[in-house]
Design a protein around this nucleic acid. Structure first.
Lengths: 221, 221
DNA sequence: GGATCACCTGGACACAACCTGACCGCGTGC
DNA sequence: GCACGCGGTCAGGTTGTGTCCAGGTGATCC
């Protein structure tokens, strides 16, 4: 039984080596691109069951790519390749929705083991968050034709919400997803951003997309 | 003989270390997730015999997760990992239905000893509480298709009831489960919440789900 | 039947959680 | 310098939740 896998790695040598090695280990490499934009463009209905993404991409931060994937309803596990096991990288990547990470340089065998573990754990497909979608390249949110630009913080915040359609996301989880680790974020700051997001969504005719669940958090869909 | 165990820990390093260590000590790690939602989603029929849960999860309070597990009829013992042995945390964790706790940082050996003790003590599986179920992610109660949103206090209260289907739960036990430690709760306040819960359950066509046992307490199922 | 008790019900109220609009500081680009 | 966009803060208003009261209902016992 083969597992469909997608690779995003800008270094050509490494990308080719990964593809060859994974194929030999029984993976079905359905996509192999150098940039996040190419991945999103080429996804189609290839439905990879697991992703390997380099965090240090030239066109996109790997974390934003994970957020964009999650916002599209993709729940397949993502393994991030990070440079030198940097703790900050690891934490923020994890918060973005990645499922595992591997610091470079790594043993190929460990990569395969971790991938197998991720796939074994299993993930269920998510319902797509009706109509709304995030455009990573343009850094904006769209809904049937119309679209609205987002600032980086707004983007991360909305992505964290869209990643879990129908679920209540706690305020703490939103802060963890949208702001860098360690920093102190006023509760009210989150409120402000929710307001800004709601305004922009209202302009798309989706004023009610973000629902408040008092005492718990927020929900979309 | 191996014991099936599930781990919920958001810190990646610690999660991996726990998994590796427990495996070496003869446990069968059937589930290892970073969030409460993932755990509930991934449970399937893996039927862990014991749980290790970090109380400080970003998406869910560990205590709510225990309540949700109990409400699903899961009776397997739960060990909570708490930060710095905070007494308040410990007490409220116990009230939520946890069976043991361990303050961080801890010696790995102590964790294993406590887990073995918990498993040895033995627990029997519970009958699922007919039809009604708590959705931790959406923070609501559901019954064949329909669902109703719950406020935090309502959620804890109903969870305490659903945790013991068929059993009579005393008023004092309900107050202890649904309200923070130390606070003084008027008897009548509990009455009010029972009323609200019954209203919401009535909207789901389960008006008679909560039965009064005069002089003792309340029972569901 | 009447007294008593446990529980139910509707409503009033305070306060915390949340929303909203405005403001300020900082960095960037013109 | 100035304009602008972005991130963050503040003060004030609004609303839902939690709490408590007052009175009602039904069971139980004498």
């Amino acid at each position: 039984m083969t597992t469909r896998i997608a690779i995003v790695e800008d270094d050509l040598t490494l990308r080719l080596a990964l593809g060859r090695g994974l194929r030999e280990d029984g993976f079905d490499v359905v996509l192999s691109t150098a940039s996040g934009g190419d991945l999103l463009a080429g996804l189609g209905d290839s439905a990879p069951e697991v992703f390997v993404v380099d965090i240090g991409l030239p066109d996109t931060d790997g974390r934003d790519l994970v957020l964009a994937l999650r916002a599209r309803g993709v729940r397949a596990p993502v393994l991030l390749l990070t440079a030198r096991g940097d703790v900050t990288d690891r934490l923020s990547g994890f918060r973005a929705g990645a499922d595992d990470y591997l610091p470079k340089p790594f043993h190929f065998e460990e990569l395969v083991l971790r991938l197998r573990a991720l796939v074994r754990r299993g993930h269920q497909p998510a319902d797509p968050p009706d109509g709304l979608f995030l455009d990573l390249a343009a850094h904006e949110v769209g809904c049937d034709g119309k679209s609205a630009g987002l600032t980086p913080t707004e983007f991360r915040l909305l992505a964290a919400l869209l990643a879990r359609p129908g679920e209540v996301v706690r305020r703490q989880a939103l802060i963890a997803a949208a702001w860098p680790a360690g920093g102190i974020v006023h509760d009210n700051t989150l409120d402000s951003y929710l307001l800004r997001l709601r305004r922009k969504l209202a302009a798309l005719g989706r004023a009610d997309a973000i629902v408040t669940v008092r005492g718990v958090g927020y929900r979309v869909g």
